[in-house]
Computed example of a mutant assay.
Amino acid sequence: MVKQEILLLVLSALSQAMGCFQLITPSKWGAKPANCSAPLKDLLPEYVIIIHTVQNPCKTPAECAREVRNVQDYHLHLKEWCDVAYNFLIGEDGLVYEGRGWRSEGSHTYGYNDLSLGIAFIGTFTQRSPNEAAWKALKCLLDFSVKIGYLSPDYLIMAHSDISDVVSPGEPIRSEISKWPNYRHN
């Protein structure tokens, strides 16, 4: 009886946290089968790396699913990686698209792939910031990730350009996350 009550409490907490954002699983966005097997380190990820995909932005679930499939095709066929590089992607439709998810190592940032979550905004954001719906989805995803034990409560957030010599995620995004209390410039 006690186990059932605990399970119900956990499920209730998860459903409340998930109410803040909607996760679109790979099967729902039309992913091709992945060939990845490297898990993240046993420790909780300590970093969140924010990236942009450098492609068309999307504002509807259909557009965003298509753009995520385009990212996966590029990463699988041209880069010859085992799957989409990112753990999650966020569209301006306010939805979170699962890439490699919480437990798999990404291919987004050399030296950080096994100890971070790579989260990419879908689009090119060198001239403007993602819309409010995308920012809300990011914040909800991070809160949820901490709550369910898939991200360290003391995580640090960084722009991809803080670590690598790239433009990603664009200055408007970098400027926004630099205001966050857990931002770290490398």
Rank of each mutant, 00 (worst) to 15 (best):
Y112A: 03
S107Y: 01
G101D: 10
N35G: 03
A34E: 00
Y86D: 11
F88S: 08
I50S: 07
D42V: 03
N35Y: 08
H108S: 15
T53D: 08
H75E: 05
Y74I: 00
G106W: 01
G111H: 07
W135M: 05
A85C: 01
D93Y: 05
E63S: 08
C58P: 09
E80F: 00
L78I: 06
S104L: 15
W102N: 02
N113W: 01
K79P: 00
L76E: 01
K59I: 12
G111D: 03
E63Y: 09
D114F: 02
D73R: 04
K59E: 15
S145D: 07
C140V: 13
N131I: 07
A31V: 03
A137W: 08
E63T: 03
K41H: 11
W102Y: 15
V96S: 12
K41I: 03
K136N: 12
C64I: 09
R103F: 13
E92I: 08
K79M: 01
L115N: 14
P33Q: 10
T109R: 14
F125C: 03
W135K: 12
Q72R: 04
G94T: 07
I122C: 08
L44T: 06
K41R: 15
C58W: 06
K59Y: 14
Y74H: 11
A120S: 14
P39W: 03
L142Q: 06
L142E: 13
E63V: 04
D42C: 04
N113Q: 02
G91N: 09
R66V: 11
E67L: 06
G101R: 12
F88E: 08
L151R: 13
W102D: 02
S107A: 07
P33E: 09
P39C: 01
L76T: 00
I119Q: 04
Y97C: 09
E67M: 14
I90E: 04
F121W: 10
F121Y: 08
E105F: 00
F88D: 05
W81L: 00
I148F: 12
V71N: 10
Y86T: 01
L44C: 07
A134I: 08
P45K: 08
K79G: 00
P33C: 01
E63W: 05
I122R: 07
V84L: 08
C140A: 14
D73C: 01
K136Q: 14
V48Q: 09
C140N: 12
D73T: 06
D93N: 13
F144W: 15
I119R: 05
G30R: 10
H108P: 00
V71G: 02
I148Y: 10
I90F: 12
L43F: 11
L44Y: 07
A137P: 04
Y97H: 09
R100P: 02
C140P: 12
N70A: 15
P57T: 14
I148Q: 14
R103D: 15
G101N: 07
H77I: 02
D42F: 06
D93W: 05
L117Y: 06
E92P: 08
N131R: 13
V48A: 12
H52D: 14
L43S: 14
L89A: 11
Q72G: 02
A31I: 06
N35A: 11
S116P: 06
D93F: 05
V146T: 13
C36N: 02
S145H: 10
I50V: 15
A38P: 00
G94P: 10
